[in-house]
Design a binder for these strands. Structure first.
Length: 201
DNA sequence: GTCATGATTCAA
DNA sequence: TGAATCATGACA
C-alpha cells in the first residue's frame, strides 16, 4: 500500500496555499484538481484522495435542487467557502463552494490520506487504523473536528486552515455515491493508487 | 450482506 | 407532520 509519504510521516511537500481563485472554476474542474492536495485543519493534515462535484443547475443530486438555503448560500458567499451540513442526522459532511463565470457548485471531500496530526485524529475517531481514519466523508470530518459551526467559514486565509497545492497523482473517475438521482454522472474523482478511498472505483 | 442510528430542511 | 437525506459501525 502506498500512502504517498514516507513511513515516518514527516515529509512536507513544497507548494503554495490555494486561494479563492482556484475555486472560481466549475466544480468538476476543482474536484479533479484537488486530488493530491493537502488539506490542513488546525494541526491535522491529510492528502485529498477522493472528491465529488455537484453542479448548481441541472443536477438533481445537488442541494440547490430542492433547498432554497443552498441557493442562497451560493448567492451570499465567495468561492472557497466551506459548506458544512449534517447528513442522516449523524455525520457532518464538508464541501467547498465553487463560484465563477462558468458555473457554480460544490466539491464534497470524501476521503483523505492522513499526513499529520494522526494522534489527534485517532483520539477523535476512536480507531487506530490509519487507513480507515479518513476513508469516508463522515469519517474525515470527525477526524478533523469539523462541525456545523464551520458552515460558511472562509478557511483559505492561511494559518491553521487551508489547502496546499499538490497533484501529480493518477486520477480515476466514477459515479457518485449514496445518492438516488443522477448518480450515473462520472463526477466522483479519486487517486488511483490510494488505499484510503471510501470505496473502490 | 442487513440494520439501527436520528438532525435538519422543506413541502404539505 | 412527515418525507427525504452526498453515511457509518455493528453484527450475521
Amino acid at each position: 500500500m502506498d500512502l504517498h509519504r514516507p513511513p515516518d510521516g514527516t515529509l512536507k511537500l513544497p507548494g503554495a496555499d490555494l486561494t479563492p481563485d482556484f475555486f472560481r472554476r466549475p466544480p468538476g474542474v476543482c474536484a479533479r484538481a484537488l486530488i493530491g492536495c493537502i488539506f490542513r485543519w488546525h494541526g491535522c493534515e491529510g492528502r485529498i484522495v477522493e472528491t465529488e462535484s455537484y453542479e448548481e443547475f441541472d443536477d438533481p443530486a445537488c442541494h440547490t435542487w430542492n433547498r432554497p438555503a443552498a441557493r442562497n448560500f451560493i448567492a451570499t458567499h465567495d468561492a472557497g467557502t466551506a459548506y458544512v451540513y449534517l447528513n442522516y442526522g449523524v455525520h457532518w459532511l464538508f464541501n467547498v463552494l465553487t463560484k465563477g463565470p462558468e458555473g457554480n457548485g460544490f466539491v464534497l471531500f470524501r476521503a483523505l490520506e492522513p499526513v499529520a496530526g494522526l494522534e489527534e485524529m485517532r483520539k477523535r475517531r476512536g480507531v487506530s487504523d490509519e487507513i480507515s481514519l479518513c476513508s469516508g466523508p463522515g469519517k474525515l470530518t470527525k477526524a478533523l473536528g469539523i462541525m456545523g459551526i464551520h458552515h460558511g467559514v472562509d478557511f483559505l486565509g492561511g494559518g491553521p486552515t487551508g489547502i496546499r497545492e499538490g497533484g501529480g497523482m493518477e486520477i480515476v473517475t466514477g459515479g457518485r455515491i449514496g445518492i438516488s438521482r443522477a448518480a450515473e454522472r462520472p463526477w466522483r474523482f479519486g487517486a488511483a493508487a490510494s488505499s484510503c478511498l471510501s470505496r473502490r472505483f
